[in-house]
Design a protein around this nucleic acid. Structure first.
Length: 835
DNA sequence: CCAATTGTCCTTTTT
DNA sequence: GGACAATTGG
């Protein structure tokens, strides 16, 4: 390890005299926790160094090198399960313990707030109060803090609202209406996506407008909407998710003194999950390190220390602008950078790893080396082919039961992953039925529930009356007898007077075109908002304001008086929000309403995630794990995306069907398919001991049951690591014929179709059942198609017939699909219906 | 003029 | 099987 340390570190460019002393800044007082900032002294220094060196215990040579690296940017290419979080944590602790960095000089960026909280906890457990002033957060949270502090520079209220995707789309809908767009063609969703991409590339609307070709209608419209959207955001004193990054970059670039302040402040920047950063985030990091700014270096500011950690194989966020180039070109971007590879996997059994490597090995131009491990083979990876999603869920439930009985595995050790959130329903149904405790992470998140968003809209309005999206959201919630008419009148008035919607409401007396009833209703609403604003301005806490708003508006009463049983749980959710707000007031006494709202906007409720045990050294995490060990806990259900960075002893990855995973929408491009492949890799590598892969032959997606072929990813699993419990569903033989009468999986009135454990299942299991052997499909069932007919295909969706050939059993059609282009399809087998 | 009701699209993945 | 928009009845 010393070899690695001395050879890779200390590149020529680094001025040794400027490196901080290795000696710790303080005397260790028995244990690490006792350290306080102070002056170094002789023997104490040696002792402290010994303490610091203990941070290297249990690390392999590469990991040590990564912890010890000094001088110049460092790229750690860390394969799945190679202990990257551990290395990053130790590296920060080491910087602090040796006095190379003060905690106030550290900015560590993680992917989620949960990861940030855990990392902070672990570092604190290692070096105690020395870690106090460091920033550990996501890009977004860090940017909000900077923007709030520097709001004046940007002409922004420091209580600006933060718009999530839903809010942005609402505002875009308003903009689209205003511009009288064809919202069928330009949906808010698509517009949001386009604008988000532009922002990720740091292209502001002025630049974009000047670049677009007027003859391209999509670009021209996007430019107009983008401009209006930004104007509306500014009027609302709101920033969307992408603005948080882009505006921070703008700030740093436009105000050199501000930039310099933060560069001096954050001498050590560490970025986790670097493969998932987008261009804007890349530039932000570059601005903060000042490495690219030669001119500033001439001004006496040395470049900051930058450490990034990532794994190109786990890049799964390209859809949101992440670019692998940030990791593959790191050495070009930072010429004196060093790279350290961590390829040893400590997490998974060899069988699991071989399966994972198989899935990802096909990717073109893949640079990484396959992971290696000294771990034992472990049990084989279990495959299962279910008849349908309920059968799949039943298999999982039965298997969890069996594992509990035979190996004492607890629910908390088990995770079930799926590609899309919608897939969780079938799983939940079965888990409820068999009585297995479970928790769904993500999905319809707490903060996305309607009542929560309504309540938060009141709070936002209180903090920022100009927040038009929020003020309009609860304009008639609870019902105040205000409809489109009243809304339009107020909107017109606001536009005519150049004031915000919220401000306009106060002048309801002057508003033309309203009935007396509407005037009264708006007046009451305006009064309520004014009162809430005053409370917020007087420093009332979020819980107090929430209480008042819910009571005074009649929102709570409306829910309580309702007979809809759903509304009862809404009341409970509001109580939960109130509890969160109260807890916030207690834990952060000087936290403002804006602070609370920031947390609500940026913190996905990842608190539900089980604490990750794994690394042994972190006292706090260890204690928590030990305390929880007695509990059986809950099975964790989540999407594959959410699973990134986690690990579980037992993992089920479901839905291995072409169309589900890889998702149908990714068929269009090679890049997207590769991203799906990496997603599979991420899923498989979450497992420590046991891995299960399943698919359903028939899956019911919104209404209609669909036959789906096996996922192409399954073909790349090395057969020797697989144990197929069931290779065909009992509907398998039916497949080619099944089209005439698709399996009925809808069950009216909640009556559940029993899963197939009958003789059919037994007969098919494992034996080479002949594919459609018995009766060739009767000719009458083959749809007769002519050019121009519209059809739907179970896998490819809507299509138009562009050519036909052959007759009867051999009839073939060329069909133009929306996503897929033209396909040649043998009608005898294809799941096609004529429309 | 508003509110409940019927139709329509739909679904990736998320900070 | 759900969110949300246009539609119709009150």
């Amino acid at each position: 390890m010393n070899d690695l340390f001395t050879s890779s570190a200390l590149p020529a460019l680094i001025d040794l005299t400027r490196l901080p002393s290795l000696a710790p800044a303080s005397v260790p007082d028995g244990d690490l926790d006792g350290w306080a900032e102070g002056a170094p002294s002789g023997t104490a220094a040696a002792q402290a160094q010994a303490q610091a060196d203990r941070l290297l215990d249990g690390l392999n040579a590469e990991q040590k090198a990564a912890v010890l690296h000094r001088g110049g940017p460092l790229l750690i290419v860390a394969g799945a399960g190679s202990g990257k979080t551990r290395v990053l944590t130790r590296r920060i602790a080491y910087l602090l313990a040796t006095g190379q960095a003060r905690s106030s000089e550290i900015l560590a960026i993680t992917f989620t707030n949960k990861a940030a909280a855990e990392m902070r906890e672990r570092v604190e457990a290692l070096v105690g109060p020395r870690a106090k002033a460091m920033w550990v957060s996501t890009f977004h949270s860090a940017c909000v803090r900077i923007l709030r502090r520097e709001a004046a520079h940007l002409n922004l209220k420091s209580t600006f609202s933060i718009y999530d995707t839903q809010d942005s789309q609402r505002l875009l809908q308003l903009c689209a209406n205003e511009l009288a767009l064809d919202t069928k063609r330009f949906t808010p969703k698509k517009l949001a996506h386009r604008i988000s991409n532009l922002k990720n590339e740091l292209i502001d609307y002025e630049t974009y407008s000047s670049q677009v070709s007027e003859t391209n209608p999509v670009e021209a419209v996007t430019a107009r909407v983008y401009a209006l959207y930004q104007q509306r955001l500014a009027q609302a004193h709101a920033l969307d998710f992408d603005d948080l990054i882009m505006q921070t970059v703008n700030l740093l670039q436009a105000f050199p003194d501000v930039a310099e302040h933060y560069r001096r402040r954050f001498r050590h920047i560490l970025v986790d999950e670097y493969q998932d950063t987008n261009h804007a985030q890349y530039v932000l990091v570059r601005e903060l390190t000042g490495v690219a700014a030669d001119a500033r270096r001439a001004g006496g500011l040395e470049p900051g220390e930058l450490t990034v950690v990532g794994d190109a194989d786990q890049s799964i966020y390209a859809f949101r602008g992440a670019t692998i180039r940030n990791i593959t070109e790191f050495e070009t971007d930072y010429p004196n950078a060093a790279t350290i590879f961590l390829n040893q996997n400590y997490r998974s059994t060899f069988n699991i790893l071989r399966a994972a490597n198989g899935v990802v090995s096909l990717i073109k131009g893949r640079k990484g080396k396959p992971l290696r491990t000294d771990n034992e083979d472990g049990p084989k990876v279990v495959g299962y082919v279910a008849d349908n999603e309920h059968d799949e869920a039943q298999f999982i439930a039965d298997e969890i039961d069996r594992l509990a009985k035979e190996y004492g595995i607890r629910p908390r050790d088990v995770a079930v992953f799926y590609r899309t959130n919608a897939q969780s329903r079938a799983l939940e149904e079965v888990l409820v039925r068999v009585g297995l405790p479970y928790v769904v992470v993500g999905g319809t998140r707490f903060y996305e529930r309607r009542e929560i968003r309504d309540a938060v809209a009141y709070l936002r309005a209180a903090a920022n009356l100009d927040d038009t999206v929020s003020v309009q959201r609860v304009f008639n919630v609870p019902k105040r007898g205000l409809g489109d008419r009243a809304l339009a009148a107020a909107q017109a008035y606001a536009a005519g007077h150049g004031i915000s919607f919220g401000a306009a409401l106060a002048q309801v007396e002057d508003m033309p075109g309203l009935t007396a009833r509407a005037v009264r209703a708006i007046g009451q609403y305006a009064h309520l908002l004014a009162t809430l604003s005053e409370m917020a301005a007087d420093g009332a806490g979020p819980a107090q304001i929430l209480d008042f708003a819910m009571a005074e508006s009649g929102y709570l009463a409306e829910l309580q008086d309702s007979t809809d049983p759903q509304d009862a749980s809404r009341v409970e959710n509001l109580a939960e929000l109130h509890a969160v707000a109260s807890e916030f007031e207690q834990s952060t006494p000087d936290g403002t309403l804006a602070d609370f709202l920031e947390r609500v906007s940026l913190v996905a409720d990842s608190d539900q995630l089980p604490p990750q045990a794994g690394t042994a050294e972190e006292a706090a995490a260890e204690a928590a794990a030990a305390a929880a060990a007695a509990e059986a806990g809950q099975v964790t259900l989540m999407t594959l995306h959410t699973a990134k960075g986690l690990e579980f002893p037992v993992v089920f990855v479901t839905g291995f069907e072409d169309g589900t995973f890889p998702h149908q929408r990714s068929f269009a491009s090679e890049q997207e398919l590769e991203e799906e492949r990496r997603l599979a890799y991420v899923g498989l590598t979450r497992a420590r001991q046991r891995l299960y892969l399943s698919r359903a032959e028939v899956r019911t997606t919104w209404g209609a049951p669909q036959y789906l072929p096996p996922s192409r990813f399954l073909e790349n699993l090395p057969p020797e690591v697989m144990e197929w419990r069931r290779e065909k569903g009992s509907s398998g033989a039916l497949r080619p014929e099944s089209w005439a009468g698709p399996v009925r999986t809808s069950y009216p009135g909640g009556g559940r179709r029993s899963t197939y454990h009958g003789p059919a299942a037994g007969r098919e299991g494992g034996s080479g059942a002949q594919f459609g052997s018995a009766t060739p499909r009767p000719a009458k069932d083959i749809p007769h198609l002519e050019v121009g007919d519209m059809i739907t295909h179970d896998v490819y969706g809507l299509g138009t017939v562009v050519a036909t050939e052959g007759e009867g059993l051999n009839a073939v059609a060329r069909i133009q699909f929306r996503e897929e282009g033209v396909k040649r399809i043998l009608l005898r087998f294809a799941p096609v219906t004529k429309l």
